[in-house]
């Protein structure tokens, strides 16, 4: 059974950093981009993220993550290049279709910003086990019950997916049509999803009881089997983030006073 995750096992300093600091890194990146909304700043942030991803030896795994947003990014470039309200200056044309500079610049900012945020997130998700992230958050005050819910989702999804194939086969062998006309496919949806939903909801009752019997609702302060390891780097990172935000405010002020 595989737990759901994008985590890549590597031996790097980035992997050692506390999960909370990687979350703060994302926050800092977004904050800086809001404070200084220029392409120059976004590119700078992106270079830093890419260097860190390189250091973590996971840079190749960033592409599939960006891929999720690839089509929408392309369509943004096209639609904005063609139709942006501020479009005036023709940048280039393909046949009769004219692409405008204003729209292209606008879409470039969007694309860089999105890729930037994706890279910052990639740094977290590629170098941190989801279960470690959740446990770290619980140690820092996240409700252990919410922590439980989050980590159990990670295992429940692969489990439900693995029953999916079985159900498909079973229903097909009973003559269920899963191809062809739309109406047939719509009709097929219920016999497919029905059993999974029923089973998983009915299972929740016994699981809830089993959790109760294992002191899930205990008022005692929770302890942890695993020890934490925090590096020297971890304690200084927070100051680096604060410094970065202050620097970006100064940058913004400099733009204004110009």
């Amino acid at each position: 059974m595989k737990s759901l995750s994008l985590y890549q096992e590597r031996d790097s300093i980035i992997h050692e950093i506390e999960p909370i600091n990687k979350l703060l890194y994302i926050l800092t990146t977004i904050l800086i981009m809001i404070i200084v909304p220029s392409i120059k700043c976004a590119v700078l942030c992106m270079i830093i993220s890419l260097m860190l991803l390189l250091k973590a030896n996971v840079i190749k795994k960033v592409l599939p993550i960006i891929n999720f947003s690839f089509i929408i990014l392309i369509s943004i470039i096209i639609i904005q290049g063609l139709f942006n309200i501020n479009n005036k200056t023709v940048l280039f044309n393909i046949g009769k279709i004219k692409f405008y500079k204003e729209g292209m610049m606008y879409s470039a900012l969007i694309v860089i910003r999105v890729i930037n945020i994706l890279c910052a997130f990639a740094l977290l998700v590629l170098t941190t086990k989801p279960s470690d992230l959740i446990e770290d958050l619980v140690r820092r005050g996240l409700s252990p019950k919410i922590g439980y819910v989050l980590s159990s989702v990670l295992q429940i999804i692969p489990q439900m997916t693995s029953t999916m194939g079985t159900i498909m086969d079973a229903q097909r062998s009973r003559g269920l049509e899963t191809e062809g006309k739309l109406i047939n496919r719509i009709k097929a949806f219920f016999p497919l999803i029905g059993p999974v939903v029923m089973n998983s909801l009915i299972a929740t009752r016994e699981r809830a009881m089993a959790l109760e019997i294992r002191a899930f609702s205990s008022k005692n302060k929770k302890t942890f089997l695993n020890e934490t390891k925090s590096t020297k780097l971890d304690s200084s990172l927070k100051y680096i983030f604060i410094a970065a935000v202050i620097l970006s405010i100064i940058w913004r002020a400099a733009i204004w006073t110009k």
């Binding site: 737990s3 980590s151 159990s152 295992q155 429940i156 299972a203 016994e206 699981r207 089993a210 959790l211």
Partner: peptide, 15 residues
């Protein structure tokens, strides 16, 4: 207490 279904007694949150 131990229940019928071994599956539902695995908490699901531990690896």
């Amino acid at each position: 207490m131990v229940f019928q279904n071994p599956f539902t007694q695995v908490t699901g949150s531990k690896l």
